[in-house]
């Protein structure tokens, strides 16, 4: 049976934990809003670029199209780009991405493929390095970055494209969490190379763009735009990831705050019971002492 003093100490410690989780939740909520705004702001560019690329890719001649689009013709070596957060305390955010990547790595290894891993963000590196340290080819550090900017995505894309043209891998897949809502983030694997672009949904837009004039010719534009398309896909994924991270942290901290509240209630009840028991005991002692006289 813990003493009254111990109980009091525990209650105080849980109370300060609750204060911290509450503060983290509010910070995450503010950051989430900013991350969502950033994702929203990047959408027009990404959508236009994807629409144009989808059109160009659909019309491209498979024999002469850039290798970035058609692939190398083999799928022996896979590059997995695993994008996670720099920090923890955000529920299952990092683990779900890593779990998805792990499943893919096991499948590929079982099929006799060569796997290479490039991690973005510290948490993914820490978790994957335990089992697959020998598969690592690189790591991109995001620490010290307040927000995701296009330059970072461009750097990653340049690195990946450089490796591709060196023939280091055949297929590149990007792992990240797609933001659905505050309580739901979906771990997603997106194929980057060979590049695939989904055509815009409206058929009307398709008809208009089929008539484009190109300067210089279509193939030259395609070759110039493809690397940008890859960079934009990475950028979009990083933005989604940033929003997901804050969303996951917000709901994790909300849970933690509520749990701390429950714990405080339970401890307070126990504290009051012990206090009453102590008082009752003292009374009994006094009364029985008086009776003995």
């Amino acid at each position: 049976m813990p003493s009254l003093k111990d109980l009091k100490n525990r209650i105080n410690s849980v109370k300060s934990t609750r204060k911290i989780t509450k503060a983290m939740q509010m910070v995450a909520a503010a950051k989430l809003r900013r991350a969502q705004e950033a994702a929203e702001a990047g959408r027009p560019y990404a959508e236009r670029l994807t629409a144009v690329l989808a059109n160009l890719a659909a019309g491209a001649n498979p024999a002469t199209a850039p290798r970035l689009l058609t692939g190398t013709g083999s799928d022996q070596t896979h590059l997995l780009i695993v994008a996670t957060a720099e920090r923890g305390l955000c529920g299952g955010f990092n683990s779900t991405i890593v779990r998805l990547a792990r499943i893919r790595i096991r499948e590929l290894l079982a099929a006799g493929k060569t796997v290479k891993i490039l991690t973005v963000g510290r948490k993914g590196r820490d978790q994957l390095r335990r089992d697959y340290a020998e598969l690592f080819v690189g790591h991109v550090d995001l620490s010290g970055m307040k927000r995701v900017d296009y330059a970072t995505a461009l750097n990653i894309a340049t690195d990946v494209l450089g490796r591709f043209s060196e023939g280091e891998f055949d297929v590149a897949t990007l792992f990240f969490n797609k933001f659905e809502s505050v309580i739901s983030q979906v771990p997603t694997a997106q194929q980057l190379i060979p590049a695939s672009f989904e055509a815009p949904e409206t058929a009307e837009e398709n008809n208009v763009s089929a008539l484009y004039e190109y300067e210089p010719d279509e193939e030259a534009i395609l070759a110039e735009l493809l690397p940008r398309g890859v960079a934009t896909q990475i950028f979009t994924a990083l933005l989604e990831n940033a929003a997901s991270e804050q969303g996951a942290r917000m709901s994790a901290m909300d849970n933690a705050t509520r749990n701390a509240g429950d714990l405080i209630d339970r401890l307070t009840l126990e504290y009051n019971r012990s206090r009453q028991a102590a008082i009752t005991k003292e009374l009994i002692e006094i009364i029985s002492g008086a009776e003995a006289l």
Partner: peptide, 23 residues
Amino acid sequence: DLVSPERKLASGEADAIQIPGAE
């Protein structure tokens, strides 16, 4: 529309837009 990957810079209506094309 004038957009960059990070944000929309400007959009609206105009009489003409001069663009530095590759060629």
